[in-house]
Design a binder for these strands. Structure first.
Length: 747
DNA sequence: CACCGTTAAGTTTTT
DNA sequence: CTTAACGGTG
């Protein structure tokens, strides 16, 4: 096989097939290429059967891409080759072995909104309002436990401790019980389920260990403890494990990704070989060097330094804008300019920290007729009507899924409201059967349930519902086409008519969404050898269906969050909203150095997406939560050495805020306060900025005559209306009117 | 049981 | 400014 296209380090990464190896692959270092080469090398040169290889990724997209590229390179039957996501892999294992764990193989997979519904149900059962305890808090707690790989009654040493006296522990236990009753697993449960399986049935583990002689893991920095344990179990004694990752691109720790998996790899796999891919093929020297300076401020990282042979390239452009609207219109304006220079729109991308920032950008792009598409954002499968229909289908494949039943029992309205539902659920609990079995029995033997005093209307409604579902179940068993079942459900449940009855815009949009769901099922049928309803459902819960920006090259620019940009690259990148409290996010500023370092990695990811041209924008004033905030430029901008960028100011400084053409954001009163001139001098630079606006900026340190030293967290308003939030040494946060409070700036 | 008004809060989201 | 979620009323 040809390895001469690879650099020496990449070649070594391909050839070191045996024993544990960790490849630290910097951004744009040809990571995927190396991985693909390694797979083909194993298959072709080492003559390893595809059956013995397992490559794990995090996203379906990455898995598809890798498989695609392998199949382009070699001409071997790849049928048995497992290139798949952690979760899909676990589903596969569990579907074939799960009987041993007391689930049946038609189990459903709950996504986080369904998990949340379970938690809310548990809270309701205890009579606790969601105001007293937020379901998210409990959910986070449960997820944390599961991210460790824990399962109930796990015995033995496992390197972590679970505090069974924790106030939420009982919720965790009940939650697990509910899921088991519903024959369902959540995302975390898929992983911990396999761990449980392997621990309780070592012979099953041995079988998988024997099969997969070579293990590959992509995006290793994103693995959590549970996934790490799974990997250890799978590699067994042979330890032919190759992980590829970049600690500097770990941006999912808030979801359990544990950076210590990378930092401690050598400890867990003694004798592990560490290889670094440090040559960048993507970006200009200027961008790489600037990004390197930023990321080196992090302490939690391996010693790795990117370099490139690419030309120096142009300077990074830092654009200081007067406000968020100007920022948006600058982006649109500049894109038009680039377009005039024959730059392809598909080569341009705009990144932002939070989804809500896309609105303004979209507005100004539309105004200038620039086609764009949003990558990520609100998901199709999160829409209410889609979830409703999916719930119908879930009951058809898994009748124990009571959550699905309670979701749709009154959608469309059948006269079975919350109270009646509660009555039915209680009855099911009393008889210790599932909700579905209870409903069926009520319909079949109504005389047994006189005590429920169900109205005739309700009884007939229930009968109808049970009949429709039962019929669909028969069709499902007969392997009828999923689309047919879907359409039958849509018709007979009355959902279609229920939407058609309303002529409003919203219902119309919903109809369209359901149509789209129909075509998604059709598409699934076409590309799947033996399509089943359960297969389709699994497909959509485990595959986010994020549109691939490279897929449709119809000449649109791409908009996405920085998280969504990971793994992508664009010649032209606009990074907007680079302000304190936004990027880094105000939430992370309260959570210590680790959270801040993650924000810095995120910033690093954003920078390193750019190949040729990088614009970093920030707005002096920004409309946030209905109020204008003056957050000041992000600290990350300060971390880029000056000689890598040019600084450009947009929007003058003598005009009042937002007094442009169509602005009605401000009352006259507020607008006239911009008379205050202040100075933010950066020490040692000539860049002192005389800006009209607030007197204080977030991040500055002050002294308060009464409370002592403190740091400004945020400011809003100007002049006499200016309010500031200060965090003092003792951790207390206080609000002040800037003009009244006895405070002074500390240099 | 459905609707409406009030209230509170407001990151990121590979699976 | 938005949105979600609750509680009260018709």
């Amino acid at each position: 096989m040809e390895l001469k296209d690879l650099n020496p380090n990449q070649q070594e990464a391909v050839r070191l097939t045996d024993g544990p190896i960790m490849i630290l692959a910097g951004a744009g270092s040809g990571k995927t290429r190396t991985l693909v080469s390694r797979i083909t090398y194993l298959l072709q040169d080492k003559m390893i059967s595809p059956y013995k290889l397992l490559a794990l990724t995090f996203s379906n997209k990455a898995a598809r891409e890798m498989r695609e590229r392998v199949s382009q390179l070699i001409d071997i039957e790849l049928g048995a080759l497992q290139i798949t996501t952690f979760h899909s892999f676990c589903v596969k294992v569990l579907r074939s072995e799960v009987a041993q764990l007391g689930l049946s193989r038609n189990f459903t997979i709950y996504d986080s909104s369904e998990s949340k519904a379970v938690v809310k149900y548990l809270l309701g059962k205890r009579g606790i309002s969601t105001k007293e305890i937020s379901p998210f808090e409990i959910l986070n707690y449960i997820e944390e436990i599961k991210n460790l790989g824990h399962y109930i009654d796990r015995a033995g040493e496992f390197g972590y401790e679970i505090d069974c006296d924790h106030e939420f522990y009982s919720f965790y236990v009940e939650y697990e019980r509910e899921l088991a009753k519903a024959n369902a697993l959540d995302f975390g449960g898929l992983i911990s389920g396999v761990i449980q399986l392997f621990e309780k049935f070592p012979e099953v583990k041995t079988r998988y260990q024997n099969r997969f002689e070579y293990l590959l893991v992509d995006e290793y920095q994103d693995t959590n403890k549970a996934q790490f344990e799974l990997l250890k179990m799978l590699t067994g004694k042979r330890c032919n494990i190759c992980v590829v990752g970049d600690e500097d691109q770990s941006i999912y720790s808030w979801r359990g990704a544990d950076i210590s998996n990378i930092l401690d790899f050598e400890k867990v796999f003694p004798g592990a070989k560490i290889l670094k891919l440090e040559q960048n093929y993507r970006s200009s020297k200027n961008i790489i060097e600037a990004a390197t300076c930023v990321i080196e401020k992090n302490s939690l990282r391996k010693d790795k330094k990117m370099w490139t042979e690419n030309p120096q390239g142009e300077s990074i452009k830092i654009i200081e804008c007067k406000d968020d609207r100007l920022e948006a219109s600058f982006v649109a304006e500049e894109i038009l300019k680039l377009k005039g220079e024959q730059v392809l729109l598909t080569d341009i991308s705009v990144f932002y920290r939070t989804n809500s920032q896309s609105r303004l950008i979209e507005d100004s792009l539309r105004k200038k007729n620039i086609p764009y598409r949003i990558i990520g954002g609100t998901k199709f499968y999160d829409r209410k009507e889609v979830k409703d229909m999916l719930a119908y289908m879930r009951i058809v494949v898994n009748e124990k899924d009571s959550l699905a039943i309670s979701r749709i029992i009154n959608v469309p309205a059948r006269g079975i409201g919350a109270i009646s539902l509660r009555k039915l659920e209680d009855e099911a609990i009393r008889m210790s059967v599932s909700l579905w079995d209870a409903l069926k029995d009520i319909v079949d033997n109504p005389e047994k349930y006189l005590h429920l005093r169900l109205s005739a209307k309700m009884k007939s409604a229930l009968r109808e519902l049970v009949t429709i579902i039962s019929e669909a179940k028969v069709l499902e068993k007969e392997k009828t086409s999923p689309v047919f079942i879907f359409e039958k459900l849509l018709q007979e449940t009355g959902y279609l008519n229920y939407l058609k009855a309303n002529k409003d815009f919203e219902s119309l949009a919903r109809l369209e969404n359901l149509e789209e769901l129909g075509s998604a099922i059709k598409q699934y049928e076409q590309i799947t050898p033996s399509p089943t309803l359960i297969g389709f459902l699994e497909n959509i819960t485990l595959d986010s269906h994020v549109e691939d920006p490279e897929e449709k090259q119809t000449g649109e620019i791409s908009l996405m969050t920085v998280h969504g940009a990971k793994g992508l690259e664009f010649p032209y990148v606009f990074l907007v909203g680079v302000e304190e409290n936004l990027f880094p996010s105000y939430k992370s500023l309260d959570h210590g150095i680790e959270a801040l370092e993650e924000e810095r990695r995120l910033f690093y990811v954003a920078m390193t997406r750019a190949m040729k041209s990088l614009y970093i924008l920030f707005a002096r004033g920004r409309m946030l939560f209905g109020q204008v905030k003056f957050n000041g430029p992000s600290r990350f901008i300060d971390e880029i050495p000056e000689h890598y960028y040019t600084w450009q100011r947009e929007g003058g400084e003598d005009q009042s805020f937002y007094l442009g053409d169509d602005e009605k954001y401000f009352s006259q009163e507020e607008a006239s306060y911009d008379e205050v001139v202040y100075q933010v001098g950066k020490k040692g630079t000539s860049k002192s900025r005389n800006i009209l606006g607030p007197k204080y900026l977030a991040g500055q340190y002050i002294f308060h005559d009464l409370y002592g030293e403190g740091k400004i967290l945020e400011t809003k308003g100007t002049g006499e209306q200016e309010k500031i939030v200060i965090k003092f040494r003792d951790g207390a946060k206080k609000r002040f009117m800037a003009s009244m409070a006895p405070i002074s700036l500390i240099e």
